[in-house]
Design a protein around this nucleic acid. Structure first.
Lengths: 162, 162
DNA sequence: TCTTGACGTGTAGCAGGCTACACATTATAA
DNA sequence: TTATAATGTGTAGCCTGCTACACGTCAAGA
C-alpha cells in the first residue's frame, strides 16, 4: 500500500511532538501555541499587538483572537487599546506568565534534546536543510501544473527567514 | 531569538503541506484526512469498521465519528451495523467516492513530486530515516526525566512500521 | 474637508484534533 | 448461567486552525 509516504511521516512526527509538548505544558495549564506566544512576548519585552502575534505565530487573526482571549481568561495576558493607534490591541504578559516563562525555555530545550537524541550536529543541519527545501518547494507556485487555483499560494510572507 | 527551532520548522512544513493538499482536494469537496480515509477504504475493497479507520488514521475515535458522519452527509460513505458483531459499524464507499478515488491517487503522487523536487533518492531515504529516528526518540519514555506523567506515552501502537 | 481605501480587530460557522464520560454488545470467568 | 471485563461506538465540551463577513480607525487623495 502506497499511502504511508514521507509527507505522512512528517505529519506523524509533528503530531507526536505536539502531544509531547502539550504533556509537559499541561502542568502550567498551557498549550503549545500559548507557550510560544508567551515566549514571544517575553522576548519582546512583554508586549505586542495582535497583528504582531499573528505574524509570529503564522496563524490567521481569528485564531489569535481565540488564543488571546483564552489566555486572558486564564490570567496569562492582559489587553488594552493602543492610545497612539486605536486600531491596535496591545497584549502584555501578567506577572504570573512572566514567572512561568523561565520554565518554558528550559522545557523547550529539554524537548529539543529529547527529539534529537543521537543526532550529530551535521545531521541536524542536514535535517534543517531538507525541511527548508521542502518548504520552499511547496511554497513556489511555479511547479504546480495540476490546479491553478488562485489560493493563498502567492502569499508574500516568504521573506520569512526559514 | 531561539524560538524558531527544527521542531517548529517541522510544524511549518506540515502546515504548508496540509494547505497545499487541501487546495487540490477542495474541488472534490474533500479534506486531507477524508481523502486518506477514501484511499484506505478503496485499498480495503471498499469497507472497514470505524475501529479500523481509527487505527489507520491514527486519530481518536470521536474524531473518526465526526469525519465519518460528515462524509456520510456529503455522500462519500454509507454506514451500517455489522450483523456478525453488532458493536461494529461498517463504513463503505459510495459509488461516487469510488470514482473520485482514482483522481486522489494521482493527486497524491503529484504532491509527492512537488514536495521532493530536486531531491535525490538518497536524500529522500535519509530524510525518512531522520524522521523515523525523531519519531522513535519522542515515542520512547525512557529518556524523559522532566515529567513522569502516566500519559499515552506507553501506547503499544509502536508496532507501526514507521 | 470628505471620501475612499487600507488596516487591525471581532464574530459566525465550520473541520479536525483531543479527553472524559456513557452506553450497548460481546467475551470471559466464576 | 450470571456477573464482570473488554470492546466499539456515541456525546459533550474543549482548543486550534480556517474562510467569510462586519466594523471601527487611520491614512491619503480629491
Amino acid at each position: 500500500m502506497e499511502v504511508r509516504k514521507t509527507g505522512y511521516l512528517l505529519k506523524l512526527v509533528v503530531e507526536r511532538l505536539r502531544v509531547d509538548v502539550d504533556a509537559g505544558l499541561k502542568q502550567h495549564n498551557l498549550t503549545w501555541v500559548q507557550s510560544r506566544l508567551i515566549g514571544f512576548l517575553a522576548y519582546r519585552g512583554g508586549q505586542a499587538t495582535q497583528k504582531e502575534l499573528e505574524r509570529f505565530l503564522e496563524v490567521s487573526h481569528p485564531t489569535v483572537v481565540g488564543i488571546v482571549s483564552r489566555m486572558e481568561q486564564n490570567g496569562f495576558v492582559e489587553c488594552r487599546t493602543d492610545r497612539l493607534d486605536r486600531r491596535n490591541k496591545l497584549v502584555s504578559l501578567t506577572r504570573n506568565a512572566s514567572e512561568v516563562s523561565a520554565c518554558l525555555e528550559k522545557a523547550m530545550q529539554e524537548q529539543d534534546r529529547r527529539m534529537f537524541a543521537g543526532f550529530t550536529e551535521g545531521e541536524r543541519d542536514q535535517m534543517d536543510a531538507f525541511l527548508s527545501r521542502i518548504y520552499h518547494n511547496l511554497s513556489s507556485p511555479a511547479l504546480r501544473p495540476q490546479s491553478p487555483t488562485t489560493m493563498n499560494t502567492g502569499d508574500n510572507n516568504d521573506q520569512n527567514t526559514i
